[in-house]
Design a protein around this nucleic acid. Sequence first.
DNA 1: TTCCAGGTCGGCG
DNA 2: CGCCGACATGGA
Length: 303
Amino acid sequence: MEQIAHEVILKTPSLFSFTQMKDALANASRECLYRVADDRIYKAIPAGQDIHVVEISEAGPAQLRIRIFSETAALPEPETQSEIVRYVTEWFDLDTDLAPFYAIASQDALLKQAIDTYSGLHLPGIPDLFEALCWGIIGQQINLTYAHTLKRRIVEQYGRSAAAGGELYWAFPTPETIAALSVPELKELGISGRKAEYLIDTARMLAEGRLSKKLLQEAGDLKKAEAILVSIRGIGPWTANYVLMRCLKLPSAFPADDVGLHNAIKLLTGMDRKPTRQEVLKLAEPWKGWESYATLYLWRILY
DNA sequence: TTCCAGGTCGGCG
DNA sequence: CGCCGACATGGA
């Protein structure tokens, strides 16, 4: 990476570990929307009219460095810069103070070990609502490896890319692009017919402005935002809560039906079967207000 | 071969 | 309501 257009330093919160974030991100080795190399993370971020490749690294104590690369050496507009900063802030979850969660988790049999092992891990966000919805829909009922394969095919077929340092970086397709597709076109990638319908319908809702991140933010609370999402065909309670967790950053969002969560509970409790829904809700009672972080740490144990 | 994957829908009792 | 088959594909 030669050409450095601009550099921005962000302050990280007190209980934050760049290494934990990097390791968690690096764990999804089949991920196509960012790349982890050495102690740096690279990603193409849409901002303004363009896709900007950024490099994220640790700048010093409690500091994150963002390097914004440009093919033209021109500095990105201030508005574009702040858009990128906002994106990275959500992606690395820099606005959350984990202290209250750790206070709860240190007293919790299931979480105690995890918060110690992964101390400083924040919830990696998916700032783009369309990407978060699609990733949720794609991941329904198939294994994570295959979900990554399908996402890669969609991204490389219909996404946008930018080159930097001899590498190509991809950003997720726009709702407008997917809204214009037909079901057979998505089926060609290995996506089921029904999921193809869900993806195209969701893309249309976003493209036509019938659904937006703002609409969900202004819903007022978790239950209302969840109700909006669940009313959409293809989005059930799991996907709704997954999206509210990863994109809206609602700490009490809780994908209680998640099979990975169930497997983690089974593993940690030594049960010879997966927990029932009632058992999951019972175990989650002490997590109130921090269910999404509890889920994150339990997932981290598995993956 | 069978079963399970970071589920959801639509039909049926 | 709750239950059940269908959905697409791949890894164990």
